[in-house]
């Protein structure tokens, strides 16, 4: 009848941390990279709460509160950056920014083609009928967002 011990919680924290690290290193979607960083923070939080309970000291829980604050700030800034980067290149892939690498590094190239890329569907087009009304280009000029 013994409860779960301290080291089992520490193991869970370590596993979450390592998984987050693998995700951050491998994934190329910027959003998933930041989610992985948040998962590493979760692993640390599990550790701190476990120590707080088994030492009988509230300091661990207070530290987790601060981690929550920093994580919220980080998420806000990260999403702002992702939006800005997406607006510039129209892609969430981190590799489109690889010209920021070190000067002596070779660029990463995707050699194998993606296996199951669906072909864009080809719909039958009707022959255009009628004439384009005059002066349409001028009205569209000023209304871009």
């Amino acid at each position: 009848m013994s409860p779960a011990t301290l080291e089992s919680y520490l193991v869970v924290g370590a596993v979450l941390f390592a998984l987050g690290m693998v995700g951050f290193l491998t994934r190329r979607n910027m959003i998933i990279m930041f989610l992985s960083a948040e998962m590493m923070l979760q692993g640390v939080a599990v550790n701190l709460v476990a120590f707080a309970r088994f030492r009988g000291d509230l300091g661990g829980q207070v530290l987790v509160l601060f981690i929550l604050t920093v994580a919220a700030c980080e998420a806000a800034l990260a999403l702002a950056f992702i939006l800005m980067l997406y607006k510039r290149r129209k892609s969430l892939d981190i590799s489109v920014w690889q010209e920021l690498r070190e000067p002596d590094q070779d660029p990463v190239q995707d050699e194998e083609p993606l296996p199951d890329a669906p072909k864009p569907e080809d719909f039958q087009h009707l022959t255009p009928a009628g004439v384009q009304p005059p002066g349409k280009e001028e009205t569209q000029e000023g209304s871009h967002a």
Binding site: T26, R28, N29, S91, I94, D110, L114, A117
Partner: peptide, 22 residues
């Protein structure tokens, strides 16, 4: 499908690093 979601960067080395740490 996009390169960002269907490909990983150095999956072998990165998983090796993560699991050596673990």
């Amino acid at each position: 499908v996009s390169n960002a979601d269907q490909r990983s960067r150095e999956p072998f080395l990165a998983s090796l690093a993560g699991f050596v740490l673990l």
